[in-house]
Design a protein around this nucleic acid. Structure first.
Length: 805
RNA sequence: GCCGGAGUGGCGGAAUUGGUAGACGCGCGCGACUCAAACUCGCGUAUCGAAAGAUGUGGGGGUUCGAGUCCCCCCUCCGGCACCA
């Protein structure tokens, strides 16, 4: 009888659902296993087949861990604040909460149809008032610890989106979403002091079981660099110009200085003759978007400001220039230029004919311009002869003694711009009372969004909330206005910064989570999601978690012990799936036609989880064939258990293959190598197909092995065998090595490393005996005539290599 | 430019971590079933060659009895960062 995926899949999904098979117990003697998916933003277009790839993988591991006897927490929820719902609201007037609700329902339906073993009682939604309450509560913890502050900062203003974007949301001077131009405009914003945690975030990476690439990405993003701040006296002003340098050893070669056009000292230092030139240049620079600044990086530009600074090591007066190759937001916004040792400075010096002094001796054959390699110091007074590291230490010591500078560490990481001028986000729980800031009390939370008529932000860049007078104005009991609410909302990252903590105690109305439960479930044992969140979500949530750790709200510093990034599923044409290309594969159709199990199996079979790979419907059909084949081996044409299945003992070969499969599948699952597990199932199924009798115990073990991958099929087969115990908790089969050993083994014979033949030998015979057999092998004999044997190598059970001359 | 990763049949990909390269699936070819097709089943399928054999894991060198795997140089592709001082 053909396998009816529709009927069978629905049947078992109902069984799991109705009996709450996958509810995680907060009180259990079993060891815990917390396996987490990056929860989705429920978009209007629903899932395509690439989205659930990671969910399939985690579901397989979740089910596998249950078979291994662990108490598994495997939750799902919705990251439901976000721009698309708001854009839609602007266009149609539909409240984002309505769109969001519809989208969530569609996503939930799609995810459920794949038969995942989530504990749906723990489902969360970041827009839920109960959830918003605790997101705001965490914000207040940050605020009270001095990690949230207001600042007038040049922000990335995108007129098209009418929103201010975080640096991370701007790519090459354009908005990450939509690709619209972005400009620098000063605006009052809320910032989070993530820079205070730079070292903590950097150090925490070391012990994490994360892909190396992601750790490196985060390290680069944090961008720690060691060096010194050096003070250059300004004769004009009786103050100093401080620069940050990682090469204080080259100080004798600093022949000029460059400061950012926005640097506050520009105005004080500029000479009368240069005033107009400097002003013109500064204005040009401020108009440039980040895109322009990077595009123009080929030619150096700049203007002399007409004033000098004094090099602290030799008291020489050196000119100060402004140039946009120095940016205000890194270091001190000023550099000492060492053209002999820095290519950028070299280019600038050449262009404007400034002096170049080498301070590191170049190798004999050196032909380049600036020399950045190591070598003994020259032209550097008391540093001469020292190599870079020694020279650095010596000069820093000298600077510190002379009080002309000090050892300093700088980070690329900047504070996190945390406010958005948007409606559909968590309101920031702050009241402004006459230039003072008053955070809400905990019992005033959640501060919910008011109803608005227009979702369009005010043209000034203020959030639409600014127009809702009776929400913005906070009155006392007499109706007097005592303050104004903050109208900025939080960015979408806020909700995802801590959702994994809420899953462990999703219904707690007194606290965001109970400490006992947090201690039991955290940290997340395995976190699977796309690599696109490498620096944003993963850095932000680590930051919040570090803060919560310092405040004593969580037990472990790092939230995600092991991280894995699934790759992308490309369209059949090998390019990224997109509506515009028309190569999107819809999971609804796929599941309807082939069933959830086929789709699960195929996505795992396609290739390594972390690689990008193209979809191929033929490949999916192959997996569907496999499921039918296995079904037809076990179930006869009347829909009954095949007469082949019996208690007749399995032959040696079958037992060997079975245990080999158990061994390999277990190992491969531990390494998240799902594709090779599927191969193993196919090999074993091909073997079953050739058998006259199938031992029921072997079959039972096999069904447990395939259950994580194709749970509906497995449940139905399990049921067909007359099993009444809950398959999901049946013990994972154990390898018995005695079945893996056969009496005979095939080994290869090489002559001079070239494979010439192979022979079957009894296991455990000596090297001498093997060689006797090898040398009497018909194919080998001719190779040994008229030659001298130099060496005979025997690797037990693998290979014989005879080296001849 | 810098950081990270990858290059294996017609395609997706395996390879016990230095030991028989190409498992498994797709595709393709031949055959069986069928009036026919689909499904299903059987056999075959790295390349060249009639065969013996030779060649073969991006290219070039090296270490080794033996290299897809280790070392050096180079090329290509993907991801990230990019005047970060």
């Amino acid at each position: 009888m053909t396998y009816s995926h529709k009927k069978i899949e629905l049947k078992w999904q109902n069984h799991w659902n109705d009996n709450k098979i996958f509810a995680a117990s907060d009180k259990s003697d079993k060891p815990k296993y917390y396996i987490l998916d990056m929860f989705p933003y429920p978009s209007g277009s629903g899932l395509h087949v690439g989205h659930p790839l990671g969910y399939i993988a985690t579901d397989i591991i979740a089910r596998y861990k249950r078979h291994e006897g662990l108490n598994v927490l495997h939750p799902m929820g919705w990251d439901a604040f976000g721009l698309p719902a708001e854009q839609y609201a602007i266009k149609t007037g539909t409240h984002p909460s309505i769109t969001t609700k519809e989208n969530i329902e569609n996503f939930r339906r799609q995810i459920k149809m794949l038969g995942f073993s989530y504990d749906w009682d723990r489902e969360i939604n970041t827009t839920d008032p109960e959830y918003v309450k605790w997101t705001q509560w965490i914000f207040l913890q940050l605020y009270n610890k001095g990690l949230a502050y207001e600042s007038e900062v040049p922000v990335n203003w995108c007129p098209e989106l009418k929103a201010v974007l975080a640096n991370e949301e701007v790519v090459n001077g354009k908005s990450d979403i939509g690709g619209h131009p972005v400009y620098r405009v000063p605006m009052r914003q809320w910032m989070l002091k993530i820079t205070k945690y730079a070292d903590s975030l950097l150090d925490g990476l070391d012990d994490l079981d994360w892909p190396n690439s992601i750790k490196e990405l985060q390290r680069n993003w944090i961008g720690r660099s060691e060096g010194a701040n050096v003070n250059f006296k300004l004769p004009l002003l009786n103050e100093s110009l401080t620069v940050f340098t990682t090469r204080p050893d080259t100080l004798f070669g600093a022949t000029y200085m460059v400061i950012a056009p926005e640097h506050p000292l520009v105005e004080k230092l500029v000479s009368n003759e240069q005033k107009s030139a400097v002003k013109e240049y500064s204005e040009e620079a401020s108009k440039k978007s980040d895109l322009d600044r990077t595009e123009l990086n080929k030619q150096k530009t700049g203007v002399f400001i007409g004033e000098y600074a004094v090099n602290p090591v030799n008291n020489k007066k050196i000119p100060i220039w402004i140039s946009d190759y120095v940016i205000m937001s890194y270091g001190t916004g000023a550099i000492m230029a060492v053209p002999g040792q820095d290519q950028r400075d070299y280019d600038f010096a050449k262009k404007f004919d400034l002096p170049i002094v080498r301070t590191v001796d170049t190798p004999e054959n050196f032909e380049g311009e600036a020399y950045t390699g190591n070598g003994p110091a020259i032209n550097s007074g008391f540093l001469d002869g020292l190599y870079i590291d020694e020279a650095k230490n010596k000069i820093i010591d000298w600077l510190e003694i002379e009080e002309k500078g000090k050892r300093t560490v700088h980070f690329k990481l900047r504070d996190w711009l945390f406010s958005r001028q948007r409606y559909w986000g968590e309101p920031i729980p702050i009241i402004h009372i006459q230039n003072k800031i008053k955070p809400l009390d905990e019992d005033e939370l959640p501060l919910l969004l008011p109803e608005v008529e227009k979702y369009e932000p005010a043209g000034t860049g203020e959030s639409p909330l600014a127009n809702i007078k009776n929400w913005v104005e906070v009155n006392d009991s007499n109706g007097n206005i005592i303050g104004l609410r903050e109208t900025n909302t939080m960015p979408q990252w806020a909700g995802s910064c801590w959702y994994f903590l809420r899953y462990i105690d999703p219904k707690n109305s007194l606290k965001p989570w109970s400490n006992d439960k947090e201690k039991y479930w955290m940290p997340v044992d395995l976190y699977v999601g796309g690599a696109e969140h490498a620096v944003l979500h993963l850095l932000y949530s680590r930051f919040w978690h570090h803060v919560l750790y310092d405040l004593g709200h969580v037990t472990y510093k790092e939230p995600f012990k092991k991280l894995f990034n699934q790759g992308m599923i490309l369209g059949e044409d090998g390019t990224k799936m997109s509506k515009s290309k028309g190569n999107v594969i819809n999971p609804d159709e796929t599941v309807d036609m082939y069933g959830a199990d086929s789709m699960r199996l195929y996505e795992m079979f396609m290739g390594p989880l972390d690689k990008a790979k193209p979809w191929n419907t033929k490949g999916l059909q192959g997996c569907s064939r496999f499921i039918n084949k296995l079904w037809n081996i076990i179930i006869d044409s009347n829909g009954l258990l095949s007469h082949k299945v019996s208690i007749i003992e399995a032959d040696k070969e079958t037992l060997k293959l079975l245990h080999q499969m158990i061994k390999r599948v277990t190992k491969n699952l531990d390494q998240l190598h799902f594709n090779t597990c599927v191969s193993e199932f196919m090999v074993f199924t091909n073997h079953l197909h050739s058998l006259k009798h199938i031992n029921i115990n072997c079959l039972k073990s096999f069904i447990v092995l395939i259950n994580p991958f194709v749970p509906h099929l497995a449940e139905e087969l399990w049921n067909s065998l007359g099993q009444t115990n809950e398959l999901s908790f049946v013990k994972w089969p154990i390898v018995d090595n005695k079945y893996l050993i056969s009496d005979e083994i095939s080994i290869a014979i090489q002559i001079n490393g070239k494979r010439r033949s192979e022979i079957l030998i009894p296991i455990n015979i000596s090297k001498e005996e093997v060689l006797i057999r090898v040398k009497s092998n018909k194919i080998i004999i001719p190779y040994l005539l008229d030659v001298t044997i130099i060496k005979e190598i025997y690797i037990e059970g693998r290979i014989v290599n005879i080296v001849v001359k």
